[in-house]
């Protein structure tokens, strides 16, 4: 090896080592999905579960934590074996990794949070086909190192959780007058608090279509604040 190449090699090494754990690029991986690259409103991924589990805030938070857990571990493990996976069967490999993680989540929920697990019913299993997981594995983990993949997973699942919590906040507050099960507007059957003055819960908020409309309004406000996101057909 000539001196020149050695020098270049050394220079590369120095440059490589210099990238800090939380460089600007890495920080962007976490903050981007919270707003301008939000998995639900901009990338349009993982909508089924986002809309279906938002009747109560508790379920929404549990679902977000479950997705956070699965997405981080799946992203890191797929990123670790990314050079070993044959391209043709990569979807099946990814599905198996994700399915194994989801089984862990499902068993833990059944053991410690049985009521939430009953309420989420099939949606725990549907984390497997949650487009966020497959989408991030395909788009990011297959081409990047484990550490950035972990950050990407954290960012995207936080962005996902944020939308879930916002939607479920409105649905639970106006649909049943509660937040996390605590009665905010008073008790509807005993006619206390606001209900004594003739306030009534909006039953529509408990039905599926209302989550679609809340997400649509969320998209509207987000794009109003940031016109660069507006689609041109």
């Amino acid at each position: 090896m000539s001196e020149q190449t050695v020098a270049i090699e050394e220079k590369k090494k120095v440059v490589k080592e210099r990238e800090p754990l939380f460089s600007k690029k890495n920080k962007k991986l976490i903050t981007d999905p919270l707003d301008e690259n939000n998995p639900i409103t901009i990338q349009v991924l993982g909508i089924c579960s986002a809309l279906a589990v938002t009747v109560q805030m508790k379920a929404a938070v549990v679902m977000s934590v479950a997705v956070l857990f699965v997405l981080i571990l799946a992203n890191v493990s797929v990123s670790l074996i990314r050079n070993l996976i044959p391209n043709r069967i990569r979807i099946i490999v990814q599905l198996v990794v994700v399915a194994a993680l989801v089984i862990i989540v499902d068993q833990v929920l059944k053991a410690y949070l049985f009521d939430v697990s009953k309420e989420l019913s099939v949606f725990v299993g549907l984390i497997i086909t949650n487009c966020i997981i497959m989408g991030r594995l395909e788009a990011f983990a297959l081409g990047n190192k484990p550490w950035p993949s972990a950050l990407d997973a954290i960012g995207n699942s936080l962005g996902y959780g944020m939308v879930l919590v916002i939607v479920s906040f409105f649905k639970e507050l106006f649909g049943s007058g509660k937040l996390f099960g605590f009665e905010i507007f008073g008790n509807a059957t005993e006619q206390t608090g606001l209900y004594a003055m003739g306030y009534m819960d909006n039953g529509l908020m408990l039905l599926p279509p209302s989550s679609l409309i809340i997400v649509a309004v969320y998209i509207w406000i987000q794009k109003l604040r940031n016109p660069s996101l507006i689609e041109t057909h």
Binding site: P209, I213, P227, I230
Partner: peptide, 16 residues
């Protein structure tokens, strides 16, 4: 309206 174009409108239509 601009901000609703595309995905936003699709969500609203599906809701209706």
């Amino acid at each position: 309206p601009g901000p609703l174009r595309g995905v936003g409108m699709a969500f609203l239509i599906t809701g209706l």
